[in-house]
Design a protein around this nucleic acid. Structure first.
Length: 422
DNA sequence: CTATAACTCTCAA
DNA sequence: CTAACGTTGAGAGTTATAG
């Protein structure tokens, strides 16, 4: 087996720089929803030691000192740039797994092994020229190794020039390389696992690769056993060409300002249900239950804390926003307690099944799987923009909506946001 | 006791 | 001016419950 992993460099930051090239070389970050945490950093900011996920307010001082630019996230833009990038990369292989917004695996079986580095370089050049995004390419015999190869490409290890092909590196060199890489860089080894492995004396990629798979399974988990085997070049994880339907669909968001009243929570929950239901209909599924939850701000220690969720079963599976909203509103009334500063609410559609496998209901007439009204709403919103048609339950003012004070225009998807040339 | 449901933990981007 | 910390989804493992 041979795979490639192509991954955008500082993807969100790079997207912003495509439309504002004067920002290249500038220390800058992109923030999460609500301008809360750092989710993308330019090379200059990484060099300052800023970690992924740091709350932005904690960086204010450093930001002033180094003139760091912070932008709100512009997901519409990033999604569009991602689609373009994936389109270009998809032309290099019949097998492509889009793993996340900024990275994809490609199946490279059947290509001449010594041609792969050149192919990687062509991918880099073409994506850079056609889309504007810099990417790095890792090539290896398993997905886990490919991830690691990509890491080497990004860090410029093993003489990589944006492309790292483990297939072209000798066994001894590879061992020496793995000796120098910390085990937490391995795909699937997170914070907890790193701690546990350290206790067992495993701190490098090499040590993990050379650990006994059976022992890893016994002492830790079957997942780690697979990781060890993959590090040895035995492919345990297949390329997943077409994404299966979601088993659950979630929509949740922190509020731009604290919410106290039931009315506001009801509007937020209705808004989230509308989004989730849209996703549900897009994959042609029905939900059998709705979960709703609310919580106060766990980071705010002086305030009284409260968090609660409830699952509302539906008598009949549906993808009708009206019925789903009714269920969610019933739930929120049940869990709401006055006197708290709510910071976040969320909904989850659960127990999903395909539209054409509807469970019948005793003593009831079965409603159509695709209510005509929902079709109209979806088509209108697709044509005229999200939120064109919505339920009144969503409300109008929405003072709780998330903050995005530093968002750039959606250059590629909204005419009305394009800067005017005078 | 077994099978399954429900819940918790971990990881990833 | 001040306070301020994301979202979505999957899978494995553990515990509770039903039969």
């Amino acid at each position: 087996m041979t795979f490639a992993l192509v991954d955008g460099n500082n993807f969100y930051v790079s997207c912003e720089q495509v439309f504002n090239p004067s920002l290249e070389g500038r220390p800058m970050v992109v923030l999460s929803n609500n301008d809360g945490c750092v989710v993308a950093r330019s090379a200059e900011v990484k060099a300052l030691g800023v970690k992924m996920g740091v709350p932005w307010f904690q960086l204010k001082e450093l930001a002033v000192r180094h003139n760091i630019l912070a932008l709100s996230s512009n997901y519409t833009l990033y999604a569009d740039m991602s689609n373009r990038m994936m389109g270009v990369l998809g032309s290099y292989s019949p097998e492509q797994e889009i793993y996340s917004i900024d990275e994809c695996f490609l199946g490279l079986d059947g290509f001449a092994p010594d041609s792969l580095r050149g192919m990687g370089q062509r991918m880099r050049r073409q994506v850079r020229q056609w889309v504007g995004i810099p990417v790095c390419v890792g090539i290896a015999a398993t997905k886990t190794l490919t991830k690691l190869a990509n890491h080497c490409a990004k860090k410029n290890l093993a003489g990589a020039d944006g492309v790292c092909d483990f297939g072209q590196i000798s066994a001894d060199e590879l061992t020496a390389l793995f000796d120098r890489i910390q085990v937490n860089e391995v795909w699937g080894v997170g914070r907890r696992l790193t701690e546990r492995l350290a206790v067992m004396g495993i701190t490098t990629v090499r040590a993990l690769r050379d650990a006994d798979p059976a022992l890893m399974r016994r002492e830790v988990s079957v997942v780690l056993e697979r990781t060890v085997r993959e590090l040895r070049g035995v492919s345990c994880l297949a390329l997943e060409d077409l994404a299966p339907n979601k088993q659950q669909i979630m929509s949740s968001r922190s509020f731009g300002e604290y919410v106290y009243e039931l009315t506001d929570l009801e509007q937020a929950v209705s808004t989230y249900i509308a989004r989730a239901a849209e996703k549900l209909r897009r994959q042609r599924s029905l939900a059998n239950a709705v979960q709703v939850y609310i919580r106060t701000n766990p980071f705010s220690e002086r305030q009284p804390q409260y968090q609660r969720g409830i699952t509302v079963p539906l008598t009949q599976a549906t993808n009708d926003t009206i019925r789903l909203t009714r269920a969610a509103l019933w739930g929120i009334k049940h869990i709401y307690r006055p006197g708290f500063a709510y910071q976040k609410a969320g909904v989850m559609l659960m127990d999903l099944h395909s539209e054409d496998q509807v469970q019948g209901v005793l003593f009831a007439t079965v409603a159509p799987a695709r209510p005509a009204l929902m079709d109209v709403i979806d088509r209108a919103n697709a044509r005229w923009g999200g939120g064109t048609l919505k339920l009144a339950a969503e409300g109008v003012k929405k003072p709780w909506q998330m903050k995005r004070e530093r968002k750039t225009p959606s250059y590629t998807t909204r005419w009305d946001e394009l800067p005017r040339v005078t």
